[in-house]
Simulated scan of single mutants.
Amino acid sequence: MAADPEAALELLRSGELEVHGRVTSASNAVLYCTVTLDGLTVPCAYKPVAGEQPLWDFPDGTLAGREEASFLVSAATGWGLVPPTVMRDGQAGPGTVQLWIEPDDEAEELIDLQDPAGPEPGWLPIVRADVGGGRTALLVHRDDERLRRLAVLDAVLNNSDRKGGHWITAPDGRLYGIDHGVTFAEPAKLRTLLWGWAGEPLPDEASEVLGRLAGALDGALGESLRPLITPVELDATRARVTVLVRGGRHPEPSPDWPSIPWPPV
């Protein structure tokens, strides 16, 4: 279903939503549901606004809108990195409903702890980690095109919480990013594990996508985002894309903001 976003969006918007339980590991309310339309039933995650925990640096009741806004930006890139997501009413009031992506338990690991002397071939360093007993290890992620696209998307979204558990490899090999409630803030808040390309030139593909995205933000995409984020946040998003296009490089960690989310995984 994720491979057909338009059909998935129609199902999520118009289908009958049935709640089956709560994802207890989430800090905000996340309800595991199914949605059914015309005899087709698929699993989904429902995040009601009423279940959002207050945050000091984001206005109350805005996380769900940021989730949908992240999907819209992802869709505009053509990379399809965020599962289809809509705002709608459910049993607990308005919130986002997102297509549930079942992880591939056999997929290769994308992060690892390795010898502090340096990453193994095919891996990129993130940070040295204290593993106890006076020992350290090197936290690394794979040099993977899917992760690199996600790093570019996060730079656009100003994602403040790209933990290692906030991406899923599906059985078809596609990578999806989830949990985008703390995005689109005006000040720089990028906090991620995907620093392996920091300061490196952007791939040609990413530069082309960002160029198209800049135009879309001045047009239909920008209009779609207006109900979901503030005008100041929309302007800041345009500015981040402009900086990426003109600079042509992956961003580097800011000295004024923690660069790694906690917990990292």
Rank of each mutant, 00 (worst) to 15 (best):
S14P: 00
V140E: 01
V232H: 14
E16R: 15
G222N: 10
Q91A: 10
L150H: 05
R88P: 00
E205P: 00
F58I: 08
H166I: 07
V245L: 13
R146C: 07
L138F: 13
P84D: 02
G122L: 08
V232D: 15
A206T: 01
I168V: 15
T34P: 00
P253R: 08
E120M: 13
E186I: 08
A214G: 07
G165K: 05
A185C: 09
D89Y: 09
N159A: 09
L40A: 13
A220R: 11
R128F: 11
L113S: 03
D115M: 10
A188R: 13
L150Y: 11
E208G: 01
S259M: 10
G181P: 01
P201T: 03
L81V: 04
S25T: 11
T183M: 11
L221D: 03
T62N: 05
S25R: 14
G61W: 04
V140T: 11
I260L: 15
T34K: 05
P5R: 08
A198T: 03
H166V: 05
T62H: 08
A216G: 04
G196A: 09
A64M: 05
G134Y: 13
D89T: 04
L202R: 04
V182W: 06
D89H: 09
G199V: 02
L113D: 04
A214N: 08
E120V: 06
T96I: 07
V35I: 14
P54I: 00
R246S: 13
P253M: 07
W167E: 11
L110Q: 10
V209F: 13
A151C: 06
W197Y: 08
A137R: 15
V35D: 03
W123P: 01
L193I: 15
L228T: 04
E208S: 04
R148F: 10
G39R: 15
T183W: 11
G93S: 04
S207P: 01
I126D: 03
D161K: 11
L81R: 01
T77I: 12
L194P: 02
S70G: 07
G95I: 01
R142E: 05
E120Y: 12
V182K: 10
L202P: 01
R22L: 06
Q53P: 00
C33D: 01
A239R: 15
S259K: 10
L12N: 12
V152R: 02
P83C: 04
L190E: 00
I178E: 12
S70L: 11
A50P: 00
T77A: 09
P5Y: 14
G196E: 11
L37M: 14
P5F: 12
G133L: 11
L138M: 14
T62G: 02
L157V: 09
G90Y: 01
E186D: 12
V97Q: 09
A69Q: 12
H141S: 02
W123E: 03
G181D: 03
